[in-house]
Amino acid sequence: MKVPPEITYRNVDKTNALDALVKEKIAKLEQVCDYISSCHIVIEKIHDRPRSGSPYRVRIDMTVPPGHELVAESNPPDVNQYPPLEAVIRDAFHAATRQLRELARQQRESDKSRTNDSAQQTTALVIKLFPEQGYGFLKTLDGEEVYFHRNSVLHDDFDRLEIGTGVHCFVELGEEGLQASTVKIVDKPGVGAGKAEQTIVKPPLGWQE
């Protein structure tokens, strides 16, 4: 996990047993998905004497690259009269595990699809540039935002890029999310990049930066 998990106890006494249980469950989450960006767990007592259901609530907030936010929560209703806190914790982590497995499955299928289509280039437009830092962002015509580095631009053409420049590139899933490689300007040779009337690639209807 890139950022150490945050565990917050509210109106609940933190014990070694609870702490060990939570850390055990976090480790199992990382077995399902080993690139979780952050994880915040809140364990709280929301009622002293509820008429029904559990007095405890456990909420797990996770972020997973490239920009997924997952939330799992457990606050058993009256069908589970006063379950122990440990059971509520296990239930919340069980829900979080299901979500992570589904997301990991979707990402694997997406990655596999990109691998199968690797012979085909993607068309994109430059939407953000940071010349001094040497990187920028593209938006593909299907709306995905993709990071690229100066070194990924062919023919040392990074300095020719402007907002709105059309390019061809390959897109892959990196450690920080989608990233582009083999970025090639599609303007005609010798023409200044970024001129809307000279750009071969036209944005789709309704496209916005």
Rank of each mutant, 00 (worst) to 15 (best):
V167F: 05
A193C: 15
E197S: 11
N116L: 09
V126A: 09
P84G: 04
Q198F: 03
T122S: 13
T182F: 03
D34I: 03
K23C: 09
G67D: 11
T140K: 00
S152L: 07
K202W: 08
P204T: 07
V201N: 04
V201E: 01
P65K: 02
V3D: 15
V167W: 05
E162G: 12
D34Y: 03
A193D: 14
R90H: 02
L161T: 08
T63A: 13
G194M: 00
K28A: 01
N16K: 07
G192P: 15
T63P: 14
K184R: 14
G192V: 07
D142W: 08
D13W: 06
N75K: 13
R101M: 12
R150S: 07
Q121M: 06
T182K: 02
Q81N: 15
G143E: 09
K188D: 08
E86C: 02
L205I: 09
S38H: 05
R57L: 03
S38E: 05
G174R: 03
E109L: 03
S181V: 10
Q107P: 01
D159R: 01
C39E: 13
Q208K: 15
G174H: 01
P66E: 06
T63I: 05
Q133N: 13
P55I: 04
D157P: 15
R150E: 09
E162I: 00
A119C: 05
I26L: 15
A72W: 11
N80P: 08
Y56T: 07
R108A: 15
L18G: 01
T140C: 01
H68G: 07
P83M: 00
T15D: 02
V71T: 15
E109D: 05
I36W: 04
P76T: 02
L125P: 05
K28W: 07
V146S: 08
F158W: 07
S54H: 01
Q99H: 13
D157S: 13
R59I: 03
R51I: 06
R160F: 03
Y147K: 08
A92R: 07
V126R: 02
P76R: 00
G164N: 06
G174E: 06
C169A: 13
E86D: 09
E73S: 13
E73D: 05
L178K: 08
V71H: 14
S54L: 01
M1L: 12
H40A: 12
V186Y: 03
A87F: 01
T15F: 11
T15M: 10
D157H: 13
P77T: 06
T8D: 00
E209M: 00
L173F: 11
R150H: 06
K28D: 04
T97Y: 01
F170C: 00
L161Q: 03
V32C: 00
A95I: 00
N75M: 11
R114G: 10
R108D: 14
R10M: 10
L18P: 02
L29M: 12
E197M: 08
I41L: 12
G134I: 07
A87L: 02
S152Q: 13
T199E: 10
E73I: 11
R49L: 12
D156T: 09
Q208D: 15
G206L: 02
